[in-house]
Design a binder for these strands. Structure first.
Length: 198
DNA sequence: GCGACAG
DNA sequence: ATCTTGTCGC
């Protein structure tokens, strides 16, 4: 159980992070290497894997980090559970953009885990989630947008949600989403499950 | 009170 | 996320 005063304190930190987000066009086409990070669990032990893949040849290498996780999963505060491990797994890897398993600004306080990591590392990030956290899905000219308070905060392609983490924009999310679920995240997910089995 | 609710 | 067999669908 997490006390109310702590969650309210964390909300203030999220608001600070949201104030430091940069929504600017990145251009998916200039990616040379792309990173993906994910975490799997076995009890209270978290197994994080960061993958760096050549966007063209799809050759990759990875780094992993294993650590205890005690903060509970609370919708809207996923970063307290996974960001520490994800950052340890991705730091040191070479790439131009990092894809995070979770939402970016498509979050109650526009501070999802992809945004937290992007701002803390001062690096381009995009959040890719398997389900919705907040907002309404509104279709416009063939594209399903996630609207929050009258603002586009993400897009939906198939069963996946893409939202800006930091230093990218909605258009970048559209360009990425059109390519289908990122292979680098599929590999990260696969490695993360393999790691906990060993 | 009821429904929603990333991983 | 994780616990878990067979099974419906593209």
């Amino acid at each position: 159980m997490v006390e109310k005063h702590l969650l309210e304190f964390l909300e203030k930190i999220q608001l600070l992070i949201a104030r430091n987000v940069e929504i600017i066009h990145f251009d998916i086409n200039r990616i040379r290497r792309i990173c993906g990070i994910d975490v799997a669990y076995k009890g209270n032990t978290g197994y994080a894997v960061g993958v760096s893949m050549d966007f063209k040849t799809e050759d990759y290498y990875y780094n992993s980090y294993i650590g205890e996780v005690n903060f509970p999963y609370i919708p809207g505060f996923l970063f307290m559970r996974e960001a520490p491990l994800m950052i340890k797994a991705v730091e040191g890897l070479a790439c131009d953009l990092i894809l995070v398993d979770g939402h970016g600004i498509s979050h109650p306080r526009k501070s999802g885990i992809a945004t937290v990591i992007g701002v803390l590392l001062n690096f381009p990030t995009i959040g890719v989630a398997k389900s919705k956290l907040v907002g309404d899905i509104i279709e416009e000219s063939g594209i399903s947008y996630v609207y929050l308070n009258g603002e586009k905060v993400g897009v939906k392609f198939g069963k996946y949600f893409y939202s800006p983490g930091n230093k990218v924009d909605i258009q970048d999310c559209i360009d990425l989403g059109k390519k289908g679920y990122p292979k680098v995240l599929k590999i990260a997910d696969m490695l993360t499950k393999k790691l906990k089995k060993e």
